[in-house]
């Protein structure tokens, strides 16, 4: 292994991805609230205004619908816009543009008008930001045909997904988890575009398939280490791409382990976890040795105080407990 590696963070990897994209293609520009002079509300785009100038790093008014729609128009006009929405909660103000235009135009125009737009937004809880800054709406967006939904959980994906998304002719939404921004680790100096079509098996194991994505991946891996010491082997799958879902990787694992646990920071009802579970029922029902289990966020608006926020979210303890329960069930 002679490949050079550098220590970096998820935040720096996101920034490096933006920098590389802006360098690689003059059609690429970044716009959003506070992406320029402020440096990004989560400091992701810090320094980019100085490097690329006001034309390509554009501060917008607090007009989510207008600047997302302008991103759609700019994409139709031949550019490759990257639109940042501060949090996925605010993206609801632009839902008309995302759903009625970005996701729809290609099909409704008979293929004449694909929308090569990338929208990045932060998602998730864990920083005591209460109920209007802490939700996870990627599962909702994954409901919508015409969109591609990505959720980077690792440094390599934080670095690589943006470039791959920009090479895709469809609207791509990237959900960056706020609890991962300070995640630190090593990344190949030459890291670049990554595959955005397949899920990744992040840990192999024979007993239970755990399907997850985003920040929950790290909780699942921690639970897997803990259970490994008890002799229970979890196979942890990082979905990475939430739409379209990579059924093959999921079902391939379920056919080996015969047990499925889905961990999702979205609310349980009507969730992405429900979708994954139902697909397993449809495609691998006779392979299952136990009922499918889920660990999701409790069905409350995410509250402010630490102990209540913790209680609402999937935790290592809940994941481990559910895995133990699942493995104890014998057909």
């Amino acid at each position: 292994m002679s490949e050079a590696r550098t220590t970096t963070t998820y935040r720096e990897a996101l920034r490096e991805a933006l920098r590389a994209a802006l360098r690689a293609d003059e059609r690429v520009f970044l716009m959003g609230e506070d992406v320029g002079r402020y440096g990004g509300s989560f400091a992701v785009s810090k320094g980019l205004l100085a490097e690329f100038g006001e034309e390509r790093v554009r501060d917008t008014p607090l007009s989510e619908s207008a600047f997302v729609g302008a991103g759609i128009g700019a994409a139709l006009g031949g550019l490759r816009p990257i639109v940042e929405i501060m949090t996925c909660n605010f993206s609801l103000l632009a839902l008309d543009q995302i759903l009625n235009n970005a996701a729809t135009l290609c099909h409704m125009s008979g293929g004449q008008f694909p929308v090569p737009l990338v929208i990045r937004m932060s998602t998730g809880a864990g920083r005591q930001l209460a109920a209007q800054h802490s939700h996870s709406f990627e599962g909702w967006y994954a409901h919508i045909p015409g969109l591609r939904i990505l959720a980077p959980a690792t440094l390599a994906d934080a670095r690589g997904m943006l470039g791959s998304a920009l090479h895709c002719p469809d609207p791509v939404l990237i959900f960056e988890h706020i609890a991962l921004l300070t995640l630190e680790g090593e990344l190949a100096a030459e890291a670049g575009d990554v595959d955005i079509r397949h899920a990744a098996v992040r840990r192999t194991g024979r007993d239970i398939t755990v399907v997850t994505y985003g920040a929950s991946l790290h909780k699942c891996l921690e639970a897997a280490s803990e259970l490994g010491r008890e002799g229970i082997e979890l196979e942890v799958i990082d979905l990475r791409t939430l739409r379209p879902l990579d059924d093959e990787t999921i079902m391939g694992s379920v056919r080996r382990t015969h047990r499925l646990l889905v961990v999702d920071e979205g609310w349980r009802s009507g969730s992405l976890a429900a979708e994954v579970g139902m697909r397993a029922v449809e495609q691998a029902f006779f392979e299952l040795d136990a009922p499918i289990a889920r660990v999701c966020t409790e069905e409350v608006p995410v509250p402010y105080p630490r102990h209540l926020e913790d209680a609402a979210l999937p935790s290592v303890a809940r994941i481990a407990a559910e895995a133990r329960r699942l493995v104890s069930r014998v057909p």
């Binding site: 520009f29 034309e55 619908s65 207008a66 600047f67 997302v68 729609g69 302008a70 991103g71 759609i72 128009g73 700019a74 994409a75 139709l76 006009g77 031949g78 550019l79 816009p81 008309d96 543009q97 009625n100 235009n101 135009l105 409704m108 125009s109 008979g110 004449q112 008008f113």
Partner: peptide
């Protein structure tokens, strides 16, 4: 819709086309 004449549609959401027009103009400018 008609790409040949740069006709970006018939939008059935009232005011839904305005942001797109802003973006098309931005693309021309950039």
């Amino acid at each position: 819709f008609d790409a040949a004449t740069r006709f970006y549609g018939g939008n059935a959401i009232v005011a839904g086309g305005l942001p797109m027009a802003v973006g098309l103009a931005l693309a021309n400018r950039l």
